[in-house]
């Protein structure tokens, strides 16, 4: 059993969501995490607000500080969860259920977390 990091990115910057819509997203996200937790494979997670997000980059002329992870794309929501999975395929299956993926252009990145046991 390995731990995987699922990072989701939401690039819908323009849309003004209504309270009802946000509540619907909330419900879907809770349901998604709930199904993973029901299999006892949810380790933890958190939201990553894009407000005040910065990236520090090493450029030829020195360190460059820019807004947001990508700069051009206006992201509004992000987050990560850590799951336990027997294989990357299983982790990908978990990722596919993320409500974030209902929006075209959004993504969930699946990354194995080094366990330090030298097997991975």
């Amino acid at each position: 059993m390995q731990e995987y990091l699922l990072i989701f990115r939401h690039e819908d910057g323009q849309k003004q969501a209504s309270p009802e819509q946000i509540q619907e997203w909330m419900k879907q996200t809770m349901d998604w995490i709930g199904t993973i937790a029901a299999k006892n494979k949810f380790v933890g997670g958190n939201g990553l607000p894009f407000e005040d997000a910065k990236v520090v980059r090493a450029a030829a002329e020195g360190l460059l500080v820019t807004n947001g992870p990508f700069g051009d794309i206006k992201e509004t929501l992000g987050g990560y969860i850590i799951v336990k999975a027997d294989s990357v395929e299983e982790a990908v299956e978990f990722a596919k259920g993320s409500p974030v993926l209902q929006g075209v252009g959004n993504s969930v990145e699946v990354r194995k977390i080094a366990s330090g046991d030298g097997i991975h």
Binding site: I22, I33, G47
Partner: peptide, 18 residues
């Protein structure tokens, strides 16, 4: 501000519980 509060909730509640 009211809308921002719900986004803040969306960033926390699903992971930490309501």
């Amino acid at each position: 501000i009211a809308s921002e509060c719900f986004l803040a909730a969306l960033e926390t509640w699903p992971y930490k519980g309501v």
